[in-house]
């Protein structure tokens, strides 16, 4: 251990010239080992359920039900994933989820940009009312207006349709606030210069604000994509046909309920892995944007 400490020390001292800590270096290193060990335990505990689900998705039914439980992957990954792909209309389910996630995220970003632009760059009668109306949507999650929203969608003839799945998700107070916040940090000189050059409002939005907003748009997109992909109550209510289901709901048909089914948990877990992979991959690949989006949409 002391060997590792000596190797690492020069780099650290160079990076953080804190001379006062030098006499306590040895004790400090042990502290670090303990901290890393505790953090690794946390990571392992958090990773275990997904690891276990993956392991099950590679086993045969015999291996799944074996006692003691087998906690290492087997070799039937392809067979199980092919089975799950074919059995539950998986391509259709994933496609529907992708449409809901992408369209609702883009729609939210578009209408929030426009309304935030109106609120920051114009004075108009009813501005305060518009702002408060958008704010109040925060207090009306779908869970508190279940039955009546269903009736509204029904009277629009939008049950079992992509419009019904996406448009009602598009009002977003948080996205509007994020853009409003961002526009207010854009220097006043920019809009003054643009106006002197005779640039109109729409062109200003398109050619000046939009290029400045990409970081915010990317951050919002990641957060909203995951929000849309993981919707449950909303699609459950307004879709009846198999063809319009989203994947999070479609998975339920594969749950082997106790007693009546062959315990095909391997196929179930294979389908679950397919359903959770897209949003998890988006978080991992676009992590920087995701964290930015999470923290900033809450301001």
């Amino acid at each position: 251990m002391s060997g590792g400490g000596t190797v690492a020390a020069p780099a650290r001292v160079a990076a953080l010239p804190r001379v006062l800590e030098a006499p306590r270096r040895r004790a400090f290193d042990w502290g670090r080992v303990v901290v890393h060990a505790l953090l690794l335990i946390c990571v392992a505990v958090i990773a275990f359920p997904l690891y276990y689900a993956f392991v099950i998705s590679t086993q045969t039914v015999q291996e799944v039900v074996a006692r003691p439980p087998i906690l290492r992957p087997s070799v039937h990954l392809l067979a199980n994933y092919a089975e799950a792909w074919g059995r539950s209309h998986m391509p259709r389910l994933l496609w529907n989820s992708a449409i809901v996630a992408v369209v609702s995220a883009l729609g939210k970003i578009a209408i929030s940009m426009l309304s935030a632009f109106a609120i920051v760059y114009f004075n108009f009668r009813g501005k305060a009312i518009a702002f408060w109306m958008i704010f109040i949507t925060l207090m009306l999650p779908v869970e508190v207006r279940i039955m009546s929203t269903y009736e509204v969608i029904g009277s629009l003839g939008w049950l079992d349709s992509y419009s019904g799945l996406t448009v009602p998700l598009m009002a977003s107070a948080t996205a509007t606030f994020l853009f409003r916040q961002f526009y207010m940090t854009v220097p006043n000189e920019l809009v003054e210069a643009a106006q002197l050059d005779g640039v109109g409002p729409l062109r200003f939005l398109w050619a000046f604000l939009l290029p400045l907003s990409w970081a915010n748009i990317a951050a919002l997109f990641v957060v909203l994509f995951i929000f849309g992909w993981n919707q449950y109550l909303w699609p459950l209510m307004i879709t009846n046909s198999e063809a319009m289901r989203v994947v999070v709901i479609g998975l339920q048909d594969l749950i082997p309920r106790t007693g009546t089914h062959v315990p095909e948990w391997n196929v179930m877990m294979a389908a679950a892995m397919m359903a959770l992979l897209p949003p998890v991959a988006v978080i991992l690949v676009m992590q920087r944007w995701f964290v930015k989006g999470l923290i900033e949409t809450e301001k």
Binding site: A118, I119, M133, V144
Partner: peptide, 23 residues
């Protein structure tokens, strides 16, 4: 123009949030 810009947001809000809440 400002009314046109806030219209989509307000429309979705009124139709899918306010109306059902009042219902």
């Amino acid at each position: 123009l400002p009314y046109v810009l806030v219209l989509p947001q307000i429309a979705v809000t009124v139709v899918f949030f306010f109306w059902p809440a009042f219902e």
